[in-house]
């Protein structure tokens, strides 16, 4: 089971131009890739500041509250869906999946990005805005307990 011994490459005369090409060509490819990627603009940053009139993301507070209420109104329903799991973390994780999908759906409805919608969701929880039933979403989460497939 003898492996082929390493060949005596180091004794092979190599033209100096070939040596430099072996360094410069790979470097050129990497630089070309970097240059090509730099032609793409990163997504613009979000201005998340709130102005004196309580506008944020260019949206008045009433609109943000309405968007938040639209998400929060499904809270009980989504939690109920998660009841098929025995474990509380799994239930909440399932709930979070529904929130995520609904936010994705709302990006098309409101023409706002996921980031803005999630920041509005965060703002509603933080400012204890009520949902349409007058309830406030909890500001905590269950502890991390990854499920196995069984629970």
């Amino acid at each position: 089971m003898a492996l082929a011994q390493p060949h005596a490459h180091w004794e092979r005369p190599v033209p100096r131009g070939w040596q430099w090409a072996s360094l410069l060509l790979p470097l050129a490819v990497v630089l070309a890739l970097i240059a090509r990627m730099h032609q793409a603009d990163p997504p613009p940053a979000i201005d998340a500041r709130t102005d004196a009139a309580d506008n944020r993301f260019g949206l008045p507070v009433e609109r943000r509250r309405a968007i938040y209420a639209e998400i929060a109104s499904h809270h009980d329903q989504w939690l109920a869906y998660g009841a098929r799991f025995a474990d509380p973390w799994s239930q909440h994780d399932d709930y979070a999946n529904h929130v995520s999908r609904h936010v994705h759906y709302l990006t098309g409805v409101h023409g706002l990005g996921h980031e803005v919608l999630f920041l509005i969701y965060d703002e509603g929880i933080r400012r204890h805005w009520p949902d349409p039933d007058g309830k406030v979403l909890p500001g905590h989460w269950v502890v991390l307990k990854p499920r196995t497939v069984e629970d």
């Binding site: 979070a96 980031e115 999630f118 933080r126």
Partner: peptide, 10 residues
Amino acid sequence: AVGNRWMSHL
């Protein structure tokens, strides 16, 4: 934030 792990990169 309460956040959401399904879009944790945000």
